[in-house]
Lab assay of single mutants.
Amino acid sequence: LKKVVALYDYMPMNANDLQLRKGDEYFILEESNLPWWRARDKNGQEGYIPSNYVTEAE
């Protein structure tokens, strides 16, 4: 899975979204639905995130 790091905080707009915290790492599960990607956080929560809020992890 592709790993990304959040560049900004993101508060979910609806139940399908995943909250982002700046500096945290996330795994990308699906990239087909631009600009929204399906992601999983370190706690196993899954949801959609804005792809322009993250960058690929080193």
Rank of each mutant, 00 (worst) to 15 (best):
Y8C: 15
L18M: 06
L7Q: 05
V54I: 07
S51D: 03
E25C: 12
G23L: 03
E30T: 07
R38Q: 07
D9Q: 03
I49F: 06
A6D: 00
K42P: 05
G23Q: 03
W36A: 10
S51T: 07
D24E: 15
E58F: 13
L20R: 00
A15G: 10
N14Q: 10
R40Q: 08
D24S: 08
E58W: 11
N16S: 12
T55W: 08
L34D: 15
F27D: 07
R40L: 11
W37H: 04
G47S: 01
Y48V: 06
V4E: 01
E30P: 03
N14K: 12
D9A: 04
P50E: 03
W36L: 14
G44Y: 04
K22C: 08
A6L: 01
E31W: 12
E31S: 12
T55P: 01
D17H: 15
G47E: 00
W37M: 07
W37Q: 06
R21P: 00
S51K: 13
D9W: 03
E58G: 14
M11F: 14
R21E: 06
Y8A: 10
N14H: 14
N16E: 13
P12S: 06
G44A: 04
E31H: 11
Y26W: 01
K42H: 08
K2T: 06
M13V: 15
Y26R: 00
T55D: 05
L20G: 01
L18F: 04
L7E: 04
F27I: 12
K22R: 10
R21A: 08
R40N: 03
E31F: 11
I28W: 02
R38A: 06
D24P: 01
L7D: 03
P50K: 06
N33F: 08
I49H: 01
V4C: 06
N33I: 08
K42N: 08
D9E: 05
L20C: 02
K3A: 05
W37V: 14
R21G: 03
G47A: 01
N52G: 12
K42F: 07
L34E: 15
Q45P: 02
N43S: 12
Y53L: 09
D17S: 09
R38M: 11
A39E: 01
E31N: 11
L20P: 00
I28D: 00
I49L: 06
V54D: 00
N52C: 15
V54T: 05
N16Q: 12
E30Q: 10
E46V: 10
P50I: 05
A57Q: 11
I49D: 00
Y26A: 02
Q45G: 09
Y8Q: 12
V4N: 01
E46A: 05
W36Q: 13
G44E: 04
M13G: 09
I28T: 02
Y8T: 06
E56R: 09
L1F: 11
P12E: 03
L29D: 02
N14I: 05
V54Q: 01
S32F: 09
W36C: 14
G44C: 07
K3L: 10
V4P: 00
M11P: 06
Y53K: 05
V5C: 06
P35S: 15
P35N: 15
F27E: 10
V54N: 01
Y10D: 01
N43M: 12
D17F: 15
E30H: 08
T55A: 13
N16V: 09
M13D: 09
W36K: 14
K22M: 09
S51V: 09
L18N: 00
W36T: 11
T55R: 13
R40H: 04
K42Y: 07
A6I: 02
A6G: 02
L34Y: 15
N14M: 08
Y8R: 13
R38D: 03
P12G: 06
N33G: 10
L7H: 04
W36D: 07
Y10C: 04
L34H: 15
V4T: 03
W36P: 07
N16W: 14
A6N: 00
I49K: 00
Y53G: 05
R40E: 05
V5A: 03
R40K: 09
L34R: 10
S32N: 12
A57M: 13
L1C: 10
E30V: 07
G44P: 00
P50W: 07
D17Y: 15
L34N: 15
M11Q: 12
K2Q: 05
L7A: 04
Q45W: 08
N33H: 12
A6K: 00
E30W: 11
I49E: 00
N16M: 10
V4M: 08
P12F: 02
Y10N: 02
I28P: 01
N52P: 05
E25W: 14
R21F: 13
N33Y: 10
S32G: 13
Q19Y: 07
E25H: 14
L29W: 05
P35I: 15
V5K: 07
N43L: 10
L7P: 01
I49M: 03
A15D: 12
V5H: 05
I49S: 00
Y48L: 11
E46C: 06
I28H: 00
A6S: 05
N16K: 09
G44H: 05
K22L: 06
D24V: 08
V5G: 02
M11S: 11
N16L: 11
E31C: 13
E46P: 02
K3G: 03
D41Y: 02
E56G: 10
E25R: 05
G23Y: 05
K2N: 04
F27C: 08
Y53W: 06
Y8P: 00
K3D: 01
P12R: 04
Q45V: 13
P12A: 06
L29G: 02
D41C: 04
K2E: 02
A39C: 07
K42S: 11
K22H: 06
G47W: 01
N43D: 13
S32L: 10
A6W: 01
E56K: 11
P50R: 07
Y10M: 04
L7W: 04
Y53C: 09
E31T: 11
V54F: 04
A15Q: 12
T55I: 14
M13L: 13
N52Q: 10
P35C: 15
Y26E: 00
A6E: 01
S32P: 08
R21W: 12
E25I: 15
P50N: 12
Y48R: 09
N14S: 12
V4I: 04
E46T: 07
L20S: 00
S32E: 09
Y48K: 05
Y26K: 00
V5I: 14
L18Q: 00
Q45H: 13
V4Q: 02
G47Q: 00
A6Q: 00
S32I: 08
G23I: 00
Q19I: 08
Y53V: 04
D24Q: 12
V4Y: 08
G23M: 03
E25L: 14
S51E: 04
G47K: 01
L1Y: 10
A15R: 10
I49T: 01
N33W: 07
N52I: 09
D17K: 08
Q19M: 12
E25Y: 15
V54W: 02
K22E: 06
W36F: 15
G47P: 00
P12H: 03
E46Y: 05
P35D: 15
R38I: 09
T55E: 10
Y48P: 03
Y10T: 03
E46G: 02
N43R: 08
A39G: 05
E58R: 12
K2I: 07
E46S: 06
P35L: 15
D9K: 02
L34W: 15
Y53A: 09
I49Y: 01
M11D: 11
A57K: 11
L1W: 13
T55M: 12
F27V: 11
A39K: 00
A57W: 13
M13Y: 08
F27L: 13
Q19K: 08
D41K: 02
Q45D: 10
K2D: 02
L29A: 03
Q45I: 11
M11K: 12
A15P: 14
G23R: 03
V54H: 01
N52F: 11
L34T: 14
N16D: 13
L1P: 09
N16I: 08
E30G: 07
R38N: 06
E25Q: 10
S51Y: 14
K42R: 11
W36R: 15
P12K: 06
P50M: 08
L1N: 06
E25S: 10
Q45M: 13
R38W: 15
V5R: 08
N14D: 10
L7M: 09
V54P: 01
R38H: 09
N14L: 08
Y8L: 10
V5Y: 10
L34K: 13
